[in-house]
Each structure stands twice: as structure tokens, then as C-alpha cells.
Computed example of a mutant assay.
Amino acid sequence: MRFGIFIPQGWRFDLVDIDPAAHWSTMRSLAVRADAGPWESLWVYDHFHTTPVPSDEATHEAWTLMSAFAASTSRIRLGQMCTCMGYRNPAYLAKVAATVDHVSAGRVEMGIGGGWYEHEWRAYGYGFPEVPDRLRALREGVEILSQAWRTGSATLDGAYFQADGAIVRPLPIQEGGIPIWIAGAGEKVTLRIAAEYASYTNFNGGVEGFRHKSEVLRGHTDRLGRDFAEITRSANFNTVVGETEADVRERLRAIEARVAPYTGDATAGLMEKLTTGEGLVGTVEQVTERLAAMREVGLGYAIHYFPESAYDLSGVELFEQRVIPALSA
């Protein structure tokens, strides 16, 4: 199993109580630490407003961070899970990502999806198209990205995006272009796009859900004549790990106490991502067992968000020292 780590950027109220002037130094130090550790990749989210409620707390922009991390690290791969296709013209996005690939000496991953956070869509003037339209736009955008990185130019007269000989030079350093991760588990459209274009998918759903979505993906690759094994399946995990169950409970209490002054009535919604089955929360043994079960149904890459990491690295250290070695062999 391969491992990635999210760097806190404010989106989940994970930089509160840190002076905004110190946010970049905090993020950079965590990125440099990950670069020196066992992680294959670091990740950020592509969002503009905090969740589960919009607020005045800072949320730092994903592609600006990609460029900054590219210049601040030397080994670790750099991704976003995931870039929202509706937020940037895809020909422009192809150019941005190719430039960052050069800054990073060929370490960029492109996580891409249709987007979902209605409040920020409307606030930034993008409207909020219906799901079918967002997914059709995703398909067109991925075609433009793929063309641009393979050939150095892109042409498409689409319903949502148009490009007419858009020149994207230099090409990315990575041969064949930047790896594309298609995020989402929609069975008819999203996984069909993934089957055609993706090097990686990103979906979860627990053991049975992951197994089912994998079989749907396999059906699409079979119909396209593509080798299913070419696609690495990944999932994201909201992760809190402790030595004992009492330690885990204390960590959850500390997270809730830190965010509650900022999230108010929405605190329960934020904590639900950690206190229900959606969260990867437990002792070292429990977390390792759950990930091992996911590996058995085809999970090849696990990307972890640690809500404590800007304040307390002890949980990350436990994961690095005991969970990763147990699952990397």
C-alpha cells in the first residue's frame, strides 16, 4: 500500500488559533517534514470557503500552494484531491499544472472532479450547474488536459469548454503527461471517465462499497478494452490514531474543543466525519486492521487527513512509525 498525507490549509478549520501571518510557515514546515518522511505524496483540497460552514477563517488556494510546495520540497509528489473543473478554464489549468511540474522537477499529480460545494460556486460567480452538466464539463475538461499534455496543444469545440489550438508549452516533464486522478464514484459517468483517462481513481465507501465501485470500474475498462490493472484505486481517510482508546477519545475531544468556537452549531457536522464510520479513527491496531481490509478489496493508495497535524504531530508520528510499516511490506 502507498501513502499520501494532506497538509492543513484552513478549509476544515485546521489552522484556527494560528496567526494568518504564520500559516504559510506552518504549512511549509509540515510539507518539508512529509518530504523527509515515509509519505509518497502530499495533498491539499481545492476549496475557497471553509466547511462545514463558510466563514471568515482563511482557506488557502490549492494551485498557489502546489507551486509553493514544489519549490519547498525535493522528493515528495504533489497533488490536490481534488481540483474542481468548474473553477478554472481547463486549457489554462493545463498550462498552470505543466509549469508547476517543471518547478517540481516532474512531481505533480492532477486530481480532478466535478465539484460539489454550492456556496463557494455561487459566491465566486460560477453559478451551480446540475450534476449531469458538471460531469459533462468534467469529461470535456479532462480531454483538453490530456490533449495538452500529450501534444502541446488542445482543440475542442465543446458544449462547456472551447479551445482552438491552445499552446501548452513546455510540455510537462513527466513522460506522457501529468498523471490524472479522477475523484468520485458516480457509476455511469465519473467511473466511465476514469476508465478512459485515469491513472488513479479516488473513492471510498467502506469495504463493500469499495468492492462494488471497483467492479463497476472494471466493467467500464473491459468495455473500453483497457487493462483494469493499469488504474490504481485510492481513497481518502479522516484519520485520528492513538495508543489506546482513551487516547483516541482525548484527541477527539481536543479537536472538538478547538473548532467549536468557530463552527458553532455546525460543530457536530464537522466531527461526524471523525466519529462515524467515515473516519479512520482508533488505536494503531484498529486503524491498521481497517486499512488491511481495504487493501484486500483492492485499495492501493491511502491518503490521510490528520485534523491535529498543525497543532500536534504525535498521531502522525504513530501512523508513520507503526501503521505504514505494517502495511507497506
Rank of each mutant, 00 (worst) to 15 (best):
T64H: 12
E143F: 12
D46P: 02
D19V: 04
Q286F: 04
S314Y: 09
F237E: 02
A268L: 15
S146G: 13
Y126E: 10
W181V: 15
F69E: 07
R169K: 14
A254Q: 14
L30C: 01
W181E: 11
R211C: 05
E208I: 10
Y124C: 02
T288K: 01
I303F: 04
Q9M: 13
A36G: 15
V241A: 07
S25F: 10
M294S: 12
M66D: 15
Y197N: 06
R88D: 11
T288G: 09
G152R: 08
W24C: 02
Q147G: 07
A163L: 06
R192A: 08
G264C: 02
M1A: 04
H23A: 02
C84I: 13
P307R: 04
H119Q: 14
T239F: 01
E61G: 11
A137K: 06
W24S: 02
G279A: 08
R223L: 11
V207H: 13
L274R: 10
G152K: 06
A235N: 04
P8V: 10
I112M: 04
G158S: 11
V281F: 03
G177T: 11
G127E: 04
M1T: 01
E140F: 08
Q174T: 02
R134W: 00
A229T: 14
W149M: 03
A105R: 08
K273V: 12
T288V: 07
H220L: 01
Y126H: 13
S328E: 08
I231F: 06
T201D: 00
H220M: 01
T263L: 09
E278K: 14
G176K: 03
W63R: 13
P179N: 06
G279S: 05
A266M: 03
G184K: 05
T267F: 05
F13G: 06
L30G: 05
Y301C: 04
K273H: 14
A97R: 09
D17W: 09
G158M: 04
Y124G: 10
L291I: 03
R150P: 09
A71W: 12
G298F: 05
H23C: 05
A166M: 05
Y117F: 14
P172I: 09
D247G: 07
G141F: 01
D222I: 10
V189M: 11
P172W: 09
A310I: 05
P90C: 07
S67C: 12
L270H: 15
V16D: 03
I167D: 15
R251G: 00
K95C: 08
P38W: 01
A71R: 12
A58H: 12
H119R: 13
